[in-house]
Write a protein that binds this DNA or RNA. Structure first.
Length: 261
DNA sequence: ATGGTCGCCATGCGA
């Protein structure tokens, strides 16, 4: 069994104890982190190596930042989207050898987009097009690809509590969903929806206005799989436990279990 | 209808 997970931690400095605890409890083969908000010089790699995890990371001061933690070392890593000139650290791809096969893992922190029609929104759409170009190429090179992270898009109305609250809104707009569909059209599947799931399953809840208590969230943290891996998927679930801890991230982990090759 | 909360870092910005 291979266990692969994603978690937007909203500051790795603040959440490090929670991440270490979660790794020890769940022992994932790979954990993708977003919003580490740390420079590479400040990355706490020794805290992870002490509990048996390798780390690769692409960070910057104050904002953004992605990392991949893994029980086995990655062969090669790519720390910027080759298809976009971007100063923001939102992309990290690594290839891992599992049972003599290559698994290409792409960790993304898709721009939030702020609100429809603004500069950040168009940056989000451009970023997603660039990701599409990257994956188009990668699919030629790797048969087994996992694309996971904070997509900042709720794929369908089933992925928010009350769709009428989200009409013409960021995270749900037609252009964002079309950009995500364009990724699915490459032959990628939303792993969570390969299985029957509880209604109102979310991975992010606003810190404000008691959103978590009211379960007023959105499922915006996704794990996409190529067809080769789809057949091996055994389960996909959201672990809401870390969202209940004191000083939680506003996101909680999403976990994929794959039958071994 | 507005403001409500975090994390960054020292003030507003981004989410």
């Amino acid at each position: 069994m291979l266990k692969i997970a994603t978690w937007n931690v909203n500051s790795l400095r603040v959440r490090l104890p929670q991440v270490l605890e979660w790794l020890q409890q769940h022992q994932p083969d790979v954990l993708a982190l977003q919003e580490t908000k740390l420079t590479d010089a400040a990355f706490p790699h020794s805290a992870f190596s002490e509990i048996g995890y390798h780390a690769v990371f692409a960070g910057q001061k104050t904002y953004n930042g992605v990392a991949l933690l893994s029980q086995i070392a990655s062969q090669t890593t790519i720390t910027t989207l080759p298809t976009l000139a971007d100063e923001q650290q939102r992309f990290l791809a690594a290839t891992y050898p599992f049972q003599n096969k290559e698994l290409h893992i792409v960790n993304v922190y898709v721009p939030n987009g702020a609100e429809l029609g603004c500069d950040k929104y168009f940056y989000k759409l451009r970023w997603l097009e660039s990701l599409h170009r990257y994956l188009q190429e990668s699919i030629q090179q790797f048969s087994n690809i996992v694309v996971l992270g904070d997509f900042n898009i709720a794929p369908t109305d089933a992925d928010v509590l009350n769709p009428t609250d989200w009409i013409d809104s960021i995270l749900t707009s037609d252009s964002e969903r079309q950009a995500l569909q364009h990724l699915f059209d490459l032959g990628l599947s939303d792993a969570f929806r390969l299985f029957s799931q509880p209604e109102h399953s979310f991975s992010w809840w606003n810190y404000q206005a008691g959103s978590f208590r009211r379960n007023d969230g959105a499922r915006i943290d996704l794990i996409l799989l190529t067809n080769s891996l789809k057949a091996m998927a055994k389960s996909c679930y959201i672990d809401t436990a870390p969202r209940r801890l004191p000083r939680p991230s506003d996101h909680t982990p999403v976990v994929l279990e794959l039958q071994t090759f």
